[in-house]
Design a protein around this nucleic acid. Structure first.
Length: 276
DNA sequence: CACGAGACCTGTTCGC
DNA sequence: TGCGAACAGGTCTCGT
């Protein structure tokens, strides 16, 4: 699915518009077409349609992997999970086969939530905190310092990679950027978190920020059939590169399974059980 | 609290 | 060429 950089790319696109589509903020929502009721997490599809009608979209933000749309009265939030995508389109344009939820706007525009695997979720709530509360710090905020990361890690003994995937630990990191961050930091994915010294925590902090920032600069990654325009996939150092040379030391990249997720690393740059 | 397995879904790719 | 298995950017829930 889209991770933080992909969601950020979508948010910026909706906020700014393009040659083809206008910016989203300012439009009113005239109605919602729900083609897959389970897309709607909260409230019921019926209540969503009733409550959202007529509300104006005030802005477009991101928190972790959630897209957040403050409205007049409520807040609309969307999580794209594995295969979701959001786009502005003229109502006259043919719908795609996976456009399961469509927000009908003014002036003949639509906001379309396409989602082949149907894991995505739509929330309409009064208080966004009820959904976002559980998230850890935003890794690209100024307030996310190495000390904050160290605090989050304190008392945790589990392997670092599955911890990075936990959204209550740090928000927005997914499977790709976890592997990319750990490679930049020179840390083996199975390293017990409490074995990392402060220099390694610094490296990890830098690795996380660099991987995410570079992802955003490249407009995210486009892999499989979910193409969003980004090309960070051509700059992966380890993800999806099993057997290929590490860009730093040329050692073949290894792939293992950690917490049921494919995990890629360089055995030389990220030695196991290394203690510095 | 940590961890694994299973669930939720569909499309693509891999191996025989 | 064809077919089933494995796998995919996420997260929740349940059991040990």
């Amino acid at each position: 699915m889209p991770e933080l950089p992909e969601v950020e790319t979508i948010v910026r696109g909706l906020r700014q518009g393009s040659d083809e589509v206008p910016p989203l903020p300012g439009y009113h929502i005239r109605g919602v077409e729900v083609g897959w009721p389970r897309h709607i997490a909260e409230p019921s599809p019926k209540a969503l349609k009733r409550r959202i009608k007529g509300q104006r979209i005030v802005g477009v933000r991101r928190r972790g992997k959630y897209l957040v749309f403050p409205l007049d009265k409520d807040t609309l939030m969307i999580h794209l999970k594995m295969s979701g995508d959001l786009s502005m389109a003229p109502a006259s344009a043919e719908r795609g086969p996976y456009d399961h939820t469509v927000f009908v706007l003014d002036e003949g525009w639509e906001l379309r939530f396409s989602d082949a695997r149907k894991f995505g979720k739509v929330f309409l709530v009064e208080d966004p905190q009820t959904v976002l509360q559980k998230l850890g710090p935003e890794p690209l905020d100024d307030s996310f310092t190495p000390e904050v990361l160290a605090d989050c890690m304190r008392g945790r003994s589990r392997a670092i990679k599955p911890l990075l995937l936990e959204q209550s630990f740090v928000a927005g990191i997914g499977n790709i950027y976890a592997d990319e961050a750990l490679h930049r930091a020179g840390i083996h994915p199975l390293t017990p978190t409490d074995q990392l010294d402060s220099a390694e925590i610094q490296s990890l902090h830098r690795g996380i920020q660099e991987a995410l920032q570079q992802g955003i600069e490249r407009n995210g990654a486009s892999i499989d059939w979910v193409y969003r325009g980004g090309d960070f996939q051509n700059h992966f150092r380890v993800y999806g590169r099993e057997g290929e040379p590490c860009p730093v030391c040329k050692t073949p990249i290894k792939k293992i399974v950690v917490s049921q997720r494919g995990t890629h690393f360089c055995p030389r740059c990220q030695p196991e059980g290394e203690s510095k």
